[in-house]
């Protein structure tokens, strides 16, 4: 059946594009729903986005692009990319493992486990940063150990002092805080998808003689790919946009430990509004990249 491309058509489900659909909503329902959705999205999402771009281009295109030539801005962009490049893959591996055991098996304490995974969402970003300060700060556990008169393992203490390894107010702390904040995203996306999917297809694969990894790669993964995709996108977006937690562990050293969001704050506080919103617009463009990626995957999928 051909795709319906009228102005308010009903689109075939992405995963079952080849199958037709016998049921349609009446036109008025579609119009009402779409209108409500558009009004809601416009007032809460489109307007803030427009505000960012209007401010960013207030003084023209050349000023906009000049904002990125600043070495401090470049170093902030680099640091943000680094943090995301470590945090996202780590959380993807965790997310797949966690959703596998939660969705495919029944065990006691499962609800508690899910809730513990949700916990970083509920922790105020400020606290997410603070806990690492309490652990690794000069007044925290690590600091107390390094400064202890009679430590447990003097050799370890000497080694730590010699290494002078910095965690907070340096890159490792920023990466840790980012990982904490984005911890639940992939898992949280995958669990409902895997649960809705059930395990029948996996049972079939196993019965047909596939081993565990094969089942996962050829049966489970294709089924959860949308959830995984959303999870990675969200995790990445949040990793790059995180402000509160990173702000606590960063130390705000210009050109050294400032991520993009922190650099934006600095620019804004210097009344350099155009540059602040220009850097923000980069982060907002992330959503656009998502769109391109998603269309690309859909296109590949429809050809396959």
């Amino acid at each position: 059946m051909a795709a319906i491309v009228s102005t308010l058509g009903e689109r075939p489900s992405a995963t079952r594009a080849s199958q037709g659909r016998v049921i349609r909503n009446p036109l008025w329902v579609r119009i009402v729903f779409t209108t409500i959705a558009l009004i809601f999205v416009s007032s809460f999402l489109l307007l803030p986005l427009a505000a960012v771009f209007v401010e960013a281009f207030r003084k023209g295109i050349s000023v906009y692009f000049a904002s990125f030539a600043d070495p401090d801005a470049l170093s902030a962009i680099k640091l943000t990319l680094t943090a995301a490049a470590i945090a996202v893959p780590a959380n993807v591996i965790f997310g797949v493992a966690a959703s596998w055991c939660i969705a495919k098996f029944e065990f006691r304490g499962k609800s508690i486990l899910i809730t513990l995974i949700d916990l970083p969402f509920a922790v105020s970003p400020v606290i997410s940063g603070l806990i690492y300060v309490l652990l690794f700060g000069l007044q925290g556990w690590l600091g107390q150990y390094i400064n202890a008169e009679q430590p447990w393992f003097p050799a370890l203490q000497a080694w730590l002092i010699e290494q002078d390894f910095k965690i907070i107010f340096a890159v490792p702390g920023i990466v840790l805080a980012t990982m904490f904040v984005t911890f639940p995203f992939v898992a949280r996306e995958l669990i409902p998808v895997m649960q809705a999917q059930g395990s029948d297809e996996e049972y079939a694969a196993l019965t047909l003689g596939a081993n565990g990894w094969q089942t996962f790669w050829y049966v489970t993964l294709p089924n959860i790919k949308w959830g995984l995709f959303y999870g990675v996108i969200l995790c990445n977006a949040r990793a790059m946009g995180e402000f509160g937690a990173v702000s606590v562990v960063s130390g705000h050293i210009r050109g050294e430990t400032n991520t993009m969001p922190l650099h934006i704050e600095i620019l804004y506080n210097e009344y350099n509004f155009v540059a602040a919103f220009a850097v923000s617009s980069l982060l907002a463009l992330l959503a656009l990249v998502t769109l391109v990626l998603k269309s690309f995957i859909e296109w590949r999928h429809s050809r396959a």
Partner: peptide, 21 residues
């Protein structure tokens, strides 16, 4: 549903994550 600008709206949904708070 499909309507003009659907993909743009879809992309917009991630904005609150990407934009620093």
């Amino acid at each position: 549903y499909s309507f003009p600008g659907r993909k743009i709206v879809d992309a917009l949904v991630d904005l609150p994550f990407a934009l620093p708070t």
